[in-house]
């Protein structure tokens, strides 16, 4: 199992009485490409933060890659996240004043998954496979187009050879054409590297890329209670 959640409960410290996440049981097995569909405010970001270890749960088990991340120390979680989880956001995926190569190197800096000697070669290969023209590699990423930035974000997510990629609405700031190109590229890469993909989006039109589609409201009972 890549992700295994049991009796997960979470509420923010500011509002301890209102439970944001309440997942009795949910899991994701290796190689699965799953689309979680949920509207904003349904606890989407909270769930993702629990999975990447930035938030600690109140009760329940959080197993990611068969490791209990709810039992890890903060430092262990930071390293675990850097080593095993690739992340792609809707926007602000990259440090805007660094160039593409530096951004990817920075992600590698926290994990050391790839040895320094092969790193620059590794980065080159990735950028080439993501169709980033070589002249743009040394430009601050803020000067590049959003489409290019999102592709560099994929490279950043892939550099540490993660087992799991979490994508949080990565296409919602792209137009239809770029969005399709992005999805094709992402799916091709996760297939090639046999990476499990957890994709969160409110865009139902992306459904055809995924083998498994879930509604967040089905998984997270807290949202239902709250809505009712």
């Amino acid at each position: 199992m890549i992700i295994d959640l049991v009796n997960l409960k979470f509420s923010y410290a500011e509002q301890p009485s209102s439970c944001v996440i309440d997942i009795p049981s949910w899991s994701l097995s290796a190689g699965e490409h799953t689309l979680i569909h949920g509207s904003s405010g349904s606890g989407k970001s909270t769930l993702l933060n629990i999975l990447n270890g930035l938030l600690s749960v109140d009760s329940g088990h959080v197993k990611v890659l068969d490791q209990r991340i709810d039992e890890m120390t903060n430092r262990q979680r930071d390293t675990f996240r850097a080593n095993n989880i690739g992340y792609v956001f809707q926007q602000f995926n990259l440090i805007p004043y660094l160039d593409a190569i530096d951004n990817i190197q920075l992600a590698n800096y926290f994990s050391k998954a790839v040895s320094q000697s092969s790193l620059s070669k590794e980065i080159k290969t990735l950028l080439q496979s993501l169709n980033i023209p070589e002249k743009d590699w040394k430009k601050p990423v803020r000067t590049l187009s959003i489409g290019q930035q999102q592709r560099i974000a994929i490279a950043r997510a892939l550099i540490n050879k993660p087992t799991l990629i979490i994508a949080d609405e990565p296409t919602s700031s792209l137009d239809q054409e770029n969005s399709d190109a992005f999805m094709k590229l992402l799916m091709a890469l996760v297939n090639k590297h046999e990476i499990t993909l957890l994709f969160v989006s409110h865009d139902v039109s992306l459904s055809h890329y995924f083998s498994r589609i879930e509604l967040l409201s089905d998984i997270n009972h807290a949202g239902n209670l709250h809505a009712n």
Binding site: N52, L54, N74, R75, D78, T79, R81, A82, N83, Y87, F89, F92, N93, L94, I95, P96, L106, A107, F110, S111, R156
Partner: peptide, 16 residues
């Protein structure tokens, strides 16, 4: 804020 969040997500510890 966003830069700090991003750094955290890609694995930067608070000490960094």
């Amino acid at each position: 804020t966003r830069e700090i969040q991003l750094l955290r997500v890609i694995g930067a510890p608070p000490l960094f």
